[in-house]
Structure formats: C-alpha cells, structure tokens
Design a protein around this nucleic acid. Structure first.
Length: 585
DNA sequence: GCCGTTTTCGGCCCGACTGTTTTCAGTCG
C-alpha cells in the first residue's frame, strides 16, 4: 500500500481538482497542488509529525497542516468530504478526457447531470451538448475522440519506448534544410519513468519546412493541431508528439522552458519576476525596457537568474532551486562514471546469451568489471545446481584471465556472483560456506508478494543481515503499469541496508526502475549505498543502464553513493561487508 | 491558502491553440 505521504498527497490533489471544478479560487487550488507535491516528496512520514513539524514542509501552512492532522485523527478531512458530496467522483474523472477541463466538466454535470463517461457518450450521440454555451459540433467530436483515446489505453508509455521514437524524430528533423538545432525536451529529457507525450524542440528561421517534415513522418497517424510555432501529432503507437519551432537566439530559453517540469518553471519564473525580469520560451527580458537579456543557452538563462545550470533530471522543484542558489547542487553520477554492471544473467539460467557474448558486449561498453549473477536453485524452474554454478565459476575465471585479468591494463575483471532468491522467511538459496565462494551476491524477492507488511519487511531485513548478501535486487519488485510494489516498511529496510553495508539496487530495466526516484531520495537520507544494474537477460539490455543512471540522478545520487562507479579495490572492500576477520582473500 | 533581504497584505508563471465567441474562455503544457 501507499505510504501515508502518498495518501495525503493524493487527497490534496483531489481537493485541488474539486476546487477547480466547483469554480473555487484558482490560487487556492494551486496551493493545494503545491502542498500535495511537497508532501509526496517529503522525507519524513507525515503521519508522525505534529502541527509544527508539518508546517516545516514547504507550502504547508497552518490550515493544511491542520487538515493533515484531521486526516490521521478521523480518517477523513471534512472540507474534502464537503466538496465530494457536491460533486460525484465521476465528474472529476471526466477531466481525464483530453480537451475537457474542470469548467466544461462542471457545465456537463450542472446543466445535463452527466457524471460518467458513458453518460457523456450517450449525451453526445443524442446531440444534447449543443444547447450548452461554449459547446459546439467540434467540441462534441473532440470529446468523443478523447474518450476513444482514453479507452484505447492511450496512456503513458515506458521511457524507452518514448526515447526510441524521440531519437528517431530528432535525427530525421535535424536533416531538414534550415534546421539549426533539434532536441527532445519535456519529461523525456528529465528521464521520468513514464512519458505522456514527447516534446521536440527545433531552432530555425522559418518553421514551415520543419512543420511539413514533421507531419509527414511515417508513423504520424493524425495531425491534432498545426500552427506556425507549434504542431501536435499523434503516432501509430498512440503517443502524442509536439514540435515547437523557435528562433535560433531563443534556443536556451526554449529548451529550458519546454524541458520543465512545470513546477520547476514556475520557480524559475518567480525568480525572474523578483529581479524585474520576465522569463518565457522566447527569452529572458527586462520588464521595464522590454529588451531581451539572454537566451542563447540554458546556462545563460540560469546564470542570469543567479543559478548554476541545473541538470534536467533534477528539475522537479524538489529543492534543486534552493540547492542551486546555495551553490550546493549534487555532482550527479553519469553513465560515463559507471565502471561495471553487477547484476546480469546468461543462458545458464533465464538469460538469452552465453557468458562469452555478454562479456564481449560489456567489454565494448568499456567496463572495468562485470559480474555474472545467474539465479540460484531456489527458483527451481532455472534448474540450477551446485555443480553447474561451480562449473560456471571456472568458466568465468578462465574468461577473466583472457580479458587481461589481474592487474591487466585496460582489462575487464569478471566477477562471479549469483542472484539469490529471498524466500518467504528471508532465507536464501545456499548455506554460508557455499555463498563464501562468490565474489558478490544479489538477493531479490521473486514470489510471495502479498505477505503482510511486517512479514515482508522482516524478510528483507533478514536478507540484509546475511553477511554474503551485498545487493538487494529490484527492492520493491514493482512492474510499472502492471504490478505495484510490495507493501513493506521501506524506511526500516533502508535503515537495515545502511547498518549492514548492503547496497540497494536501482534496476535499470525500463519496466522496473526499482528503486524509484522518490524512494532513492528517502533511502539516501539513511546513508544507503546503491548499485545501478541492468539485470540484463540479453546483450541489448546492457544499454538500458542509461535509464537506471537517469533514475539515480532523479534521486540526486553522486558517484560516492553508487558502488559500481568505484574503483575495483574500493568495490571489493565494500563487498567484503565486514567479513575481513573471516580471512577471505 | 501560502508567503515575504523590496510585502503580515496583495500578490500568486506565461503563452499557444482551438472553438465558438463578434472580443474571449477554456484547456494544455
């Protein structure tokens, strides 16, 4: 289940929506949105805070803090209940339909009593919308179209799907004559785990040739809107793409603006306003003279606002503005910093490629070390045995020598490990004496996801306490869009990891990205170390490391936090996990 | 409803596009 912060955040987001729908003060609605976001991202559990503690959360004042307390005291918030009683839940759901916002949703409900999508479809077909002010035939069409998209699961897509498409679009548009610069922006540039639509930005003196090329891309199925500066299309996978064409000297301001996030932009614009400036996608301007100050690069824009350049993965208004003003932005881990992959499979278990092929691609990536971690025997379908594992170890040692081995300059070290299964009681596949033969062990939950919260927590804490478990693999086991994470007390697990010298994995596979960014931020406060791993089951999966690194960046991690950026000697010390006295060499 | 080295009151980001509108409201990002 969700942590109490998420519950409260969802409640206030709903309240903000209800305020908008009922025509309440727009600024009030915005405050609740801001408070919801601040609470969702706050490090401490809000259910443990008092009135004073709650008010230390940004955008939470006396009134909102009081509502949080009311929620935990009584299980509900009377102000929210009051609005809920006025507006059926279905009306709020109507606003999920593209082009249908709070005002139209309220009109539909008040004038026609419509509170479900089905009723809306029926009303459109009966031509009952035409009598409403502000609704015409085109509105009807758009609503039906929007409902179709909503139902066709035209939902958010995983980051890798969007990335592949965006990189292709950028490469095609870059070749258009007159295109001076082209890049993707938006949530994709910020490397969010899912992407709602793709924003592509281009710089050109004339937009027409770019708009033309854009609408004629082979996978474009529909041109939703077409203007001089902005064109929106939909692609055959249902993904929407916007192209914005801006003048070349607005590139920096445009890229900054369209990268977002919205919350980050609001903050940067506020900074501008306080300095008598105005920031828009066309540049940073002096309010009085109207003259343009800077905008050719993002660095210029941030610098004029008194900020260092802020990496896109931090632009979520989670403290990056404050840190930037103080000159304390983290020196984020990058893909180039990654020296090796510590969780990978071969065809000995459920991988697709043999050891040699996996190692060859790892070496091409320039890794200094590479761990093979096939499944242990407890996942019985993998048919692992002691003999097979020991035979693989010999094989790994041979290959290690072939790759330059010990002390070899530029050589890649191969580590032999295993991905252990954390059983229902927290035990793993092998006894200590067998585990002692591995260079490292990843341990992960693969089943019994629905144990009680305490049981699940204890189970993983026990795995951390195993002196041979170095990394907890995909810690929450979530599959994005398919399976929620397990209901464990993550803070207790984070504390156990920090105490025992066990790293938490950031699994880079795009449908996992586990831990997720918000959990990384919390874990970091416990002093936990992390391993960013591909969990590759095929050679192509090794390249998914980029999404794991993006997620690590979104969790504000530096090289010091990530064990697989460390030199081999430091990594090996960490992997000994306080077992030195046992005399392993 | 929150917030403040210009404010304890009066602000609160800004612009594009669409459709129904004859000058603008709604939606979106």
């Amino acid at each position: 289940m969700a942590r109490s912060n998420d519950e409260v955040a969802a409640l206030f987001q709903e309240y903000a929506d209800l305020i908008s729908i009922t025509g309440g003060d727009a600024f009030r609605a915005r405050v609740y949105e801001k408070a919801a976001r601040a609470i969702g991202g706050y490090h401490a559990d809000v259910s443990t805070l008092d009135l004073k503690g709650l008010q230390e959360i940004p955008n939470v004042g006396k009134s909102i803090a009081g509502k949080v307390l009311e929620y935990f005291d009584t299980g509900s918030v009377s102000a929210v209940e009051e609005l809920r009683s006025k507006i059926p839940a279905g009306v709020r759901r109507l606003t999920a339909i593209p082009t249908l916002g709070p005002k139209k949703a309220l009109a539909l409900y008040e004038e026609l009593g419509i509170s479900t999508i089905d009723e809306l479809v029926e009303a459109v077909h009966a031509e009952r919308l035409r009598d409403l002010k502000g609704f015409g035939p085109r509105t009807e069409e758009k609503i039906l179209h929007g409902i179709g998209l909503l139902r066709a699961a035209g939902d958010r897509v995983l980051v890798d799907v969007a990335m592949d498409l965006a990189e292709d679009i950028v490469s095609r548009l870059s070749r258009v004559t007159g295109c001076l610069r082209c890049a993707y922006a938006g949530s994709l540039r910020r490397l969010r785990e899912t992407i709602g639509d793709i924003d592509v930005l281009a710089a050109a003196k004339r937009s027409e040739p770019l708009m033309e090329a854009f609408t004629e891309l082979p996978y474009v199925t529909e041109v939703v809107a077409r203007g001089e500066t902005k064109t929106s299309v939909r692609t055959d996978k249902g993904l929407a793409v916007d192209l914005r064409v801006i003048p070349p000297d607005s590139w920096g301001a445009g890229l900054q603006y369209f990268t977002g996030s919205k919350a980050h932009n609001i903050r940067t614009r506020e900074l501008a306003v306080h300095q008598g400036l105005k920031l828009s996608e066309y540049g940073l301007f002096d309010v009085e003279s109207g003259g343009k100050i800077v905008s050719e690069t993002e660095e210029d824009v941030y610098a004029r606002l008194g900020l260092p350049w802020i990496p896109p993965t931090l632009r979520e208004d989670r403290g990056e503005i404050e840190a930037g003003l103080r000159g304390e932005l983290p020196d984020l881990v990058t893909e180039e910093d990654i020296r090796g992959d510590l969780h990978t499979h071969t065809d000995l278990t459920d991988g697709l490629a043999p050891l040699e092929e996996m190692a060859a691609v790892a070496a091409e990536r320039g890794y200094a070390y590479y761990a093979i971690t096939d499944h242990g025997p407890d996942l019985y379908m993998q048919r692992m045995t002691d003999e097979r594992m020991l035979a693989q170890r010999e094989h790994v040692r041979e290959l290690d020598r072939a790759y330059g081995g010990r002390g070899g300059r530029g050589g890649m070290r191969l580590l032999h490990g295993a991905e252990l299964n954390i059983g229902p009681d927290g035990g793993v596949d092998w006894p200590d004496d067998f585990l002692a033969g591995f260079d490292l062990c990843v341990a992960s939950v693969h089943s019994h996801f629905s144990q009680g919260r305490e049981e699940l927590t204890r189970r993983i804490v026990r795995a951390c306490e195993n002196p041979y478990v170095n990394i907890i693999g995909h810690p929450t086991t979530r599959i994005i869009g398919k399976r929620p994470g397990i209901d464990a007390d993550l803070d207790e697990i984070f504390a156990a990891c920090a105490r025992t010298g066990t790293a938490l994995e950031i699994n880079a596979h795009p449908d996992r990205l586990d831990l997720r960014d918000a959990d990384i931020l919390r874990a970091r406060r416990h002093g936990v170390r992390f391993a960013v791993d591909s969990d590759a089951h095929a050679t192509i999966h090794l390249a998914e490391m980029r999404y794991g690194v993006g997620t690590a960046q979104r969790g504000w991690l530096t090289c010091d936090d990530v064990i697989n950026t460390w030199p081999e000697a430091r990594l090996r010390r960490f992997l000994r996990k306080g077992r030195e006295e046992r005399g392993r060499s």
